[in-house]
């Protein structure tokens, strides 16, 4: 296991930018533009981490998209990542199951571990990793197949089911757990794209949990949905927490407040503040976090 967080991840930046500045009247231009280096404030570590990230940097060609981020995702916890557009929160969660490998020119540095094993080590197989760390995307993206085949896809490619009965079991129980079974049980052979937007997104969640991952990453899963569909997904996330650890990127602070136990605030590729969700929203430490949650920036 990793040692608990110690001072080696401590202060890096320019000392003149005092981090404990909630209530300070003005931010310097450098701070707003993210041109100086912040020290992350709050609880970056977790007592029982499933994923731990240390000093992560991500580059797209010459552009640095993520700057020295250190953060834990706890077991059976929902952590939400918030921040203004382009702050790097999506890039960050794509590091956690090596989805950035699929982008030409992307380079990830730092130490990222799943259950203590470094996931960027040479011997780690990204296919197996992604089976263990599932992902749900911004836009519902069902495959051009039937509802049944959409959910069965992961089980089929990974060889999870040894018989038709096992496959049925996996598909139906995943749909059940995604709260979709009742709605689609008579439509198993219809194309996945024929469902409504909210149903499609729950289908994508069912597809992900059919592979039985340990962590589910969600990249703004509700940004394309209406409020009612959003509420259903949020309820689902709450239920899924029993069995999975979830990292969710969201644009909506209210959603973060509703679904997550911990919240991390990103600004211009840096992690500014992490903490218990209610603390971050009601009593933020960093001035930038306060500005964001009170709606002054973002």
């Amino acid at each position: 296991m990793l040692k608990p967080m110690d001072t080696q991840y401590g202060f890096i930046g320019n000392r003149s930018h005092d981090p404990y500045v909630a209530g300070r009247d003005t931010l310097s231009k450098e701070e707003q533009d993210g041109e100086c280096i912040f020290e992350t404030v709050g609880e970056v570590t977790s007592p029982d981490p499933i994923i731990s990230v240390r000093n992560c940097n991500v580059f797209y060609g010459d552009n640095q998209a993520i700057n020295n981020v250190t953060l834990d995702v706890g077991r059976n916890e929902v952590i939400s990542l918030i921040g203004p557009s382009g702050c790097g929160k999506s890039t960050f969660i794509r590091c956690l199951n090596r989805m950035n490998d699929t982008i030409e020119g992307a380079r990830v540095e730092g130490d990222i571990r799943l259950d203590g094993e470094p996931i960027y080590a040479k011997e780690v197989d990204p296919v197996l990793l992604r089976a263990r760390v599932g992902m749900v995307f911004q836009k519902p993206n069902p495959f051009p197949k039937s509802v049944y085949e959409n959910v069965a896809y992961g089980a089929r490619i990974h060889g999870l089911a040894r018989s038709r009965a096992e496959l049925d079991e996996i598909v139906f129980s995943s749909l059940e757990r995604a709260g979709l079974y009742a709605e689609v049980k008579s439509r198993m052979d219809e194309p996945g794209t024929s469902l409504s937007g909210g149903q499609q997104q729950r289908l994508c969640i069912a597809r992900t949990i059919a592979v039985n991952p340990e962590v589910i990453l969600m990249d703004e899963p509700c940004s394309a949905l209406d409020p009612i569909a959003t509420a259903k997904i949020e309820d689902l996330i709450e239920e899924l927490r029993q069995n999975f650890s979830i990292a969710i990127v969201t644009h909506s602070m209210q959603q973060a407040a509703r679904v997550s136990q911990r919240t991390a605030y990103f600004h211009m590729g840096q992690l500014v503040e992490v903490g218990a969700t209610d603390t971050v929203f009601t009593n933020p430490i960093h001035r930038l976090t306060e500005d964001y949650v009170t709606g002054r920036i973002g």
Binding site: M99, T102, M135, G154, I157, T208
Partner: peptide, 14 residues
Amino acid sequence: PQSMRDGSLGLGAT
């Protein structure tokens, strides 16, 4: 759409 490839790769498909 790239999102469709991402969906599959995200599930661990080669």
